[in-house]
Nucleic acid binder design. Structure first.
Lengths: 333, 333
DNA sequence: ACACAAGCTGCAACCGATTGCAGACTCAAC
DNA sequence: GTTGAGTCTGCAATCGGTTGCAGCTTGTGT
């Protein structure tokens, strides 16, 4: 159906090899010939078949992306960033959604790996060991997850938490509750840690209420325990949880921010629309996606490009505190 | 790096052709040989290279998906459905996001078309003519858009609007405002039409307030005009618009549903979390994605599988009215 | 014992590109 | 008029599979 390199060659009156070179190594072919080829390409609307090229060069011009849940706005944004950046490099993106099933990750990557040059693994739920195994035979970039020896793009969670706590302390809050996400989640651990450090150094007190699903329901479930801690402010694992908190607090008649201040993390679109509009640590989501693509492509060009293993503090993406209406001065006691 | 068919053949002591047949036409090869091949495949972890197969068979085992905006929860859900169904058929999915740029659609499809067997075009913004041109040289399935002669998966917008109006009329509403989406949008036209019919046949009155962006901001922008119509209920183009309405109405101190009832369309996750929780017409989003994949694959197997051109009323997906807290009895005047 | 059909398997061509190598041509210098 | 260098172009092999065709086994009927 579509034109092949032979069609172009015939029309231009040259051999397929010349067409190939005219397109990829223009310097090697005579200007006049090159013009004839260009004309033929134009006329036929020819575009090289990437699959065929991939067989020879070993590069398919395609990368894979594995995310836990496309319907989660956080991942949707990261995906958008990846997608945009990949297109910029003329690279196509295979997208796979694991439906939050940690067991599916390895299988998907393995299936994808035959068809792509490398894969971006976003917020993987699999264990460090599994991830390391995957990286053995595929070029992988992690997003939002740090594993010793594996390249990845991460957020500086410690710093984000510090900003949130500084804001709350300035408002007079002294006792701050923390609603964690899944215990196995890398982000939960680092956010909890950052919170603890920030709270200590700023002379406040942390009241963790445990681990909850990183969802609206998780937030609703945590709300009553938050209230029971007597804290005047709460930091939630992410915005969905924070919005769940808001909902449950509202139905219990607890006023935000008059009686309790609420802070989320992510800054998904929904947060602006919440009532009250949510104060949150904005994470540059599309930016993370873009950087992941750059890193992956750099690694493919230069296999040794991997960054040194890091503990997740330096060179990471910074969040930015967005203050809206869900935080206010601590109530007088 | 990865094992090739030749490696398997060598290990099994047969020729590559036999391996190929053992895998794709098991009936043609002796059970004992087949077992030896299977063992070799297993041992080497062999999986055929799809790109190479695609060169011969003309089928790449890949489909493309073009959506206006991945960050829009509606499209995210459709994508999820497509993705899940495609995996079920062992087909990979290329995803491209046009960033709501109608001009980008044709180019993206064209670029994709070289690498895929067919593409799903979700809520395309391009004109009927452009779409028809695209369908000339690529197998295309439309989602949420109906074009004469092109196969597609659509929602029965008329019926959904009827359900919404019936609900409102039963609550005593007689004057119903309608906030349309983009004027060029196929859904806007059909929803407006369905609304008009439903309102007429149920003895109420329609007050259209014009066309707005299909976003939260669009809803905020429309709110005051809605109030000015004097209607006691409003149907919004989609949930984002409805949530925007809710926000603006709240800040103007207009109580929902006591003074004004609000109905959306889509039922995105956010709607449940809105305050008050949004009454809406739930559209089966993942189902639409699944059906689109089935239709596309069927068309690829049998090029004449195209459905007859339809006007968008029969055989479409039905919405379901989800009643939450944003609708209530009409205020006594 | 012989012919013939049926059932398997291998050879070789092919899909659409890329690339090392060698041949053809041009032009300048001797 | 040769020779040599430098440009450009084409041949042919290659990537990892699939498939038409022919050949080899085997088994059956007579």
């Amino acid at each position: 159906m579509a034109a092949t390199i032979r069609d172009v060659a015939r029309l231009a009156g040259v051999s397929p090899s010349t067409v190939s070179r005219a397109l990829s190594l223009p310097g090697m072919v005579n200007a006049a010939t090159r013009a004839r080829v260009a004309a033929a390409v134009e006329q036929l609307g020819y575009e090289p078949n990437r699959a065929a090229r991939g067989l020879i060069t070993g590069r398919t011009g395609t990368i894979g992306l594995v995310v836990p849940d496309l319907a989660n706005p956080f991942f949707a944004s990261v995906t958008k960033g990846i997608q945009a950046r990949a297109r910029h490099h003329d690279v196509a993106v295979f997208v796979a959604d694991t439906d939050e099933d940690p067991g599916a990750e390895a299988g998907l990557v393995r299936a994808l790996s035959k068809q792509v040059d490398g894969v971006v693994l976003c917020s993987p739920r699999a264990s460090d060991e599994e991830l390391a195994a995957i990286a053995q035979d595929t070029t992988v970039v992690l997003v939002n997850r740090s594993v010793e020896g594996m390249p990845g793009i991460n957020y500086d969670n410690e710093d984000g938490m510090r900003q949130a706590v500084a804001h709350l302390v300035a408002l007079g809050h002294r006792r701050i509750a923390w609603v964690g996400g899944p215990a196995s989640s890398w982000s939960t651990q680092h956010r909890g840690l950052g919170l603890r450090n920030a709270v200590e150094s700023l002379g406040a007190e942390l009241a963790p209420v445990g681990n909850f699903a990183p969802t609206y329901e998780g937030g609703r479930a945590a709300a009553d325990q938050v209230v029971a801690t007597g804290a005047s402010a709460v930091v939630a694992y992410n915005d969905l949880v924070a919005i769940g908190l808001l909902a449950r607090l509202h139905s219990r008649g607890i006023s935000v921010p008059a009686e309790l201040s609420v802070v989320g993390v992510d800054d998904i679109a929904m947060s602006r629309m919440a009532r009250p509009a949510l104060t949150t640590v904005r994470l540059p989501k599309q930016e993370a996606g873009r950087l992941a693509v750059e890193l992956l492509l750099a690694m493919l060009d230069d296999p040794d490009h991997g960054q040194p293993a890091r503990s997740g503090t330096h060179g990471d993406l910074h969040g930015e505190l967005i203050v809206r209406d869900s935080t206010g001065p601590a109530p007088q006691k």
